[in-house]
Design a protein around this nucleic acid. Structure first.
Lengths: 192, 192
DNA sequence: CAATTAGGTTAGCAAACACTAACTTTATGT
DNA sequence: ACATAAAGTTAGTGTTTGCTAACCTAATTG
């Protein structure tokens, strides 16, 4: 993941475009205008539009991965899980456009390569949470009423829904607060 | 909601296109080819592409509303909630393309009118579930540990995630079974 | 039965699309 | 200082897009 500052500028402008006007409005023209260069200049930094999108997804996936490595592994399962989502909420709040790209299974559907990347990001999160649940159940921290798989579906689904509501409010609501509330609710149900 | 059979044919073909190849591949050309008529013939039935999409959303919203009215209002809250989602799963299984359209906040983002309709559908479901939670808590059927709002976020989020997983499996998994499992899991956590 | 209408056709248009050719300017390295 | 490479420009390509004009045909209706 070695990108020039211009490449990052392009990627972030692309995410912003998608966030604000949807994938259909992301054209080489609008993108070039957003960063104030000519259209062909984009091709000095990327092979084409598809390359921009693929790099964009790879870039965000890499960011997520890096952040997950920073987690305190000595903390209890519940504390770690809380950290995971707090971290996510922070990333999203800092750069809301990411959400539109990462949670958008449908918008990259036209391209197998791109939709595969989105899937990878989703699996990355799912597996992180699943490992946490398995560990927490083994250590007797979480109730074992539900299978880890079902638990993961509930948790990640609920978290995604919290993020979606925040997005639909056009980031007017407080993701950190509302997301935390839902997570606390989940803990009330899951913790022994 | 009075639509000619040709209009319904067009709408359903459009949903199928979106489901299989994404919104970017839904063009007047592909759509006309799908149903074996010429492109301009589409304009005998709709004012334009946008009109097709708006009618499509209205059509599915109407279908959902109609089905919700069929619910047995005398049943207990938990039974009703189960019915609501069973019904949804059934609709989705019968016509998988609907999912790609109804759960796609992002793909209609380019048009305020269309994204508003998607929002309406989401609110319709949220409110239905919320009413159920409030009733169930009042009647002492559900635990009142969580606020209704948080509970709704968890339930609808988990259900959406179940549907998303089914979609990502390309409908190979069993939505009815897996969705039911997640719902049962939620009941274990929510019921007194 | 004539007139109207509904529903279809072929041909084609202006705008938007991703991208390229050819050239110029700016930065870098020896 | 100067050759090279990196990064920008203007102009323009062929294709695709949503949609229209003009015309045809079969069904409906007064």
């Amino acid at each position: 993941m070695q990108l020039s500052s211009r490449q990052i500028e392009i990627i972030e402008a692309a995410a912003l475009r998608i966030d604000e006007y949807g994938i259909q409005n992301l054209t080489t023209k609008t993108l070039a205008q957003d960063i104030g260069i000519s259209e062909p200049a984009l091709y000095r930094h990327f092979a084409g539009k598809n390359d921009i999108l693929l790099t964009l997804l790879q870039y965000f996936k890499h960011q997520l991965q890096q952040r997950l490595l920073l987690l305190d592994t000595k903390a209890s399962a519940a504390v770690t899980l809380k950290q995971i989502f707090q971290q996510q909420f922070q990333i999203f709040t800092e750069n809301p456009a990411i959400v539109s790209v990462i949670f958008a299974e449908s918008i990259f559907q036209f391209n197998p390569e791109l939709s595969q990347k989105v899937k990878e990001i989703m699996i990355l999160m799912s597996e992180t949470v699943e490992n946490n649940i398995v560990l927490g159940q083994k250590q007797g921290e979480y109730r074992s009423t539900l299978s880890p798989k079902a638990t993961v579906t509930i948790i990640t689904g609920a978290m995604r829904m919290a993020v979606l509501k925040w997005k639909l409010s056009k980031h007017q609501s407080d993701l950190n607060q509302d997301g935390q509330a839902v997570l606390d609710g989940l803990f009330k149900l899951l913790l022994k």
